[in-house]
């Protein structure tokens, strides 16, 4: 299962009792899960069930209506036991709430986790920069592959360094930093570094999107149905990139409606249906002996709406 050699210093991402809605319509209700370092979590569920909303909340795009999203150091309770019980969730909840305002660093050093939305904007930006999100749809900037892969590195640099980079690009003397190239290498796109992003196929574009997120060496990589429109070869490349990320100690959360993919790559699986997480545990357990009846039907490929 989980290999934990390279997870030192990596943060885990915790969602705790997260609820969210739009214009009064509830989309997510009381979802709790953890993305552990060096672990792949599959979030499975039919389209329109709130997976994208959940990932956006995990990526700290917006504040959940209720519950908390936090990044914390240290092993999570549920990886140690590999089984999640309601007690652990309750533990996490009391820890988090009791801690609000008590510390100034983002995330505790001893396994507790402060609500990212109780932090200052700067602290939250620092946490946000430990998380990479790859959207489902093509979202490359109208520029070279190299520019796209280096974008996240660029925004983390000083104003002066960025100005130098754009001057270099203007006179054609810019080349992407090594981290961007090696991320492109991971998804097999290093040779296309000078190509314009608009000329890529959807599979290639998605791979560059993954490289853009990986280049900054995030602690958590969130992938929103990254292979839903891709052919088997591109799918395999992206799944390999997930394994590579996992091997580097990055925690990966993958929203997918492809059950086989979840079984192939995920250590843990959460089944989200109608905005609630009805099943959450080790992938094998979730698929072999789901406790919830609708989860059993869903992973068996039956329609549950």
């Amino acid at each position: 299962m989980s290999h934990k050699e390279n997870t030192t210093g990596r943060l885990r991402l915790v969602a705790d009792g997260v609820s969210h809605g739009f214009d009064g319509d509830s989309v997510l209700e009381d979802v709790s899960l953890t993305v552990d370092p060096g672990d792949v979590l599959a979030i499975v569920g039919p389209s329109g069930t709130g997976k994208t909303t959940l990932l956006r909340l995990l990526a700290l795009f917006s504040r959940p209506d209720d519950g908390r999203v936090a990044l914390a150091e240290g092993e999570s309770v549920d990886t140690v036991s590999t089984e999640l019980t309601p007690d652990h969730v309750a533990d996490a909840r009391t820890n988090g709430h009791g801690d609000v305002g008590a510390r100034t660093n983002g995330g505790g050093g001893d396994g507790d986790a402060r609500d990212a939305w109780s932090l200052s904007d700067d602290e939250r930006l620092r946490l946000r920069r430990r998380i990479g999100l790859v959207a489902q749809d093509r979202s490359l900037f109208s520029a070279s592959v190299g520019y796209n892969a280096a974008y996240g590195l660029g925004v983390r640099r000083s104003r002066a360094a960025r100005l130098r980079s754009s001057l270099r690009r203007t006179v054609g003397r810019w080349s992407p930093p090594a981290a961007a190239l090696s991320a492109l290498e991971t998804v097999g796109m290093a040779e296309m570094v000078d190509k314009h992003a608009d000329s890529l196929s959807s599979g290639e574009a998605q791979r560059v999107g993954v490289a853009r997120a990986l280049a900054v060496d995030p602690d958590v990589l969130l992938l929103d149905e990254p292979t839903s429109n891709l052919d088997p070869r591109n799918t395999a490349v992206i799944e390999d990139a997930m394994r590579e990320a996992k091997a580097r100690g990055i925690g990966v959360a993958l929203a997918t409606h492809d059950m086989d993919q979840a079984r192939r790559v995920a250590d843990k699986t959460a089944v989200v249906l109608g905005g609630t997480c009805i099943e959450y545990g080790p992938t094998e357990r979730v698929f072999e002996s789901p406790r919830d009846d609708r989860a059993r039907q869903f992973v068996a490929g039956e329609l549950v709406y």
Partner: peptide, 18 residues
Amino acid sequence: VGGDLRDAAFAAGGTNTD
């Protein structure tokens, strides 16, 4: 300019200015 690109810049760690 599509919202997906703004989201991508934000997700890559960009501030609102970025």
